[in-house]
């Protein structure tokens, strides 16, 4: 029973990170059709920003908001300068462009920060591990879950209870008709990149506080996780992204604790195997239709 609860806790913590990742991707996919291969690398750049801000002596309470602002700025900049210039909403062109962007971001990061891993600022308070009845959970995991809950709730309210959210969903479904309701697709794309930027900033902080170090090549792992969660959930569905993220989180936690030790290295592969099987059974993913695209 304790074992099961422990897996549940671990899964919850992992799953909340993965849901945020998948949500970040799905927001932009909904309105622009972009599955952003460079998402992880943008998060890495944001993490480097946090490292740099810390190294010039800023305290964490100042680093956090500045990092978020930086992340939003980066995301909107990339959206404006790279992705909107593609001139089409075609997923394949956009995917290829994001692939190119990923290369550029990694190469530039290697150039600027070097190949060596840099320490990520991580307050000791967050690294304490709470022990209750044989269960272990780190403060950081709790923070992770709490932050994810807040963001999910905020996004839910935004998408379902505000005109802006309605406009975003309407654009995702049918941009042309949404324009007749005075909704500018351009603004919606900007909005989605801004939201993704916030999510990316939060992930950058939480993810690398957990990992402890950041390298220019850390992004691929993040992107892969986000992709798996996204595809499990079904492209373009916000609800699906959340479901997919938690599904991946629980699956990983279960695999980590119940898989024979000599198969541990196959975790990611097994996760993808699950995705493949799932997609064969249900090509549209398990997602609901919250931010669905009819395309």
């Amino acid at each position: 029973m304790t074992g099961f609860l422990q897996v549940f806790l671990d899964g919850l913590s992992l799953g909340s990170s993965y849901s945020l990742l998948a949500l970040g991707l799905t927001m932009v996919f909904g309105v622009l059709g972009l599955v952003n291969f460079a998402f992880g690398d943008m998060i890495v750049w944001t993490a480097f920003l946090a490292v740099e801000l810390t190294s010039i002596g800023l305290p964490l309470p100042a680093v956090i908001p500045l990092t978020l602002v930086g992340s939003v700025a980066l995301s909107m900049f990339v959206g404006e300068v790279v992705f909107r210039r593609v001139g089409t909403q075609n997923p394949l062109s956009l995917l290829l462009v994001s692939f190119g962007l990923s290369l550029v971001l990694v190469a530039l990061a290697v150039q600027v920060f070097g190949e060596l891993a840099l320490m990520f600022p991580s307050p000791t308070a967050l690294n304490t591990v709470l022990q209750v009845d044989g269960l272990q959970i780190s403060m950081l995991s709790l923070v992770n879950v709490a932050v994810a809950a807040v963001i999910l709730a905020a996004l839910f309210v935004l998408l379902n209870r505000s005109r802006l959210g309605l406009a975003l969903r309407a654009t995702a479904e049918n941009a042309r008709t949404a324009r007749l309701m005075a909704v500018r697709p351009k603004s919606m794309v900007r909005l989605s990149f801004a939201i993704t930027g916030v999510i990316g900033g939060v992930i950058a902080l939480l993810w690398f506080m957990k990992v402890g170090t950041v390298t220019p090549r850390s992004g691929l792992d993040i992107t892969l996780k986000a992709f798996i969660a996204l595809v499990i959930g079904g492209l373009g569905s916000a609800r699906g992204a959340v479901a997919g993220g938690f599904a991946l989180g629980f699956a990983e936690a279960a695999l980590a604790s119940w898989l024979p030790v000599d198969l541990r290295g196959l975790q990611q592969a097994l996760a993808f195997v699950v995705v493949v099987i799932l997609l064969v059974l249900r090509p549209q993913g398990i997602g609901g239709r919250l931010l669905d695209v009819s395309r």
Binding site: V82, R85, V86, G87, F99, G100, V104, V106, A107, Q111
Partner: peptide, 19 residues
């Protein structure tokens, strides 16, 4: 030249080609 010049230029080329 900078390290990773190959990937940097390939990436840029990919972006420019499609956009």
């Amino acid at each position: 030249a900078p390290r990773d010049l190959g990937n940097l230029t390939l990436g840029l080329a990919l972006i420019l080609l499609v956009t």
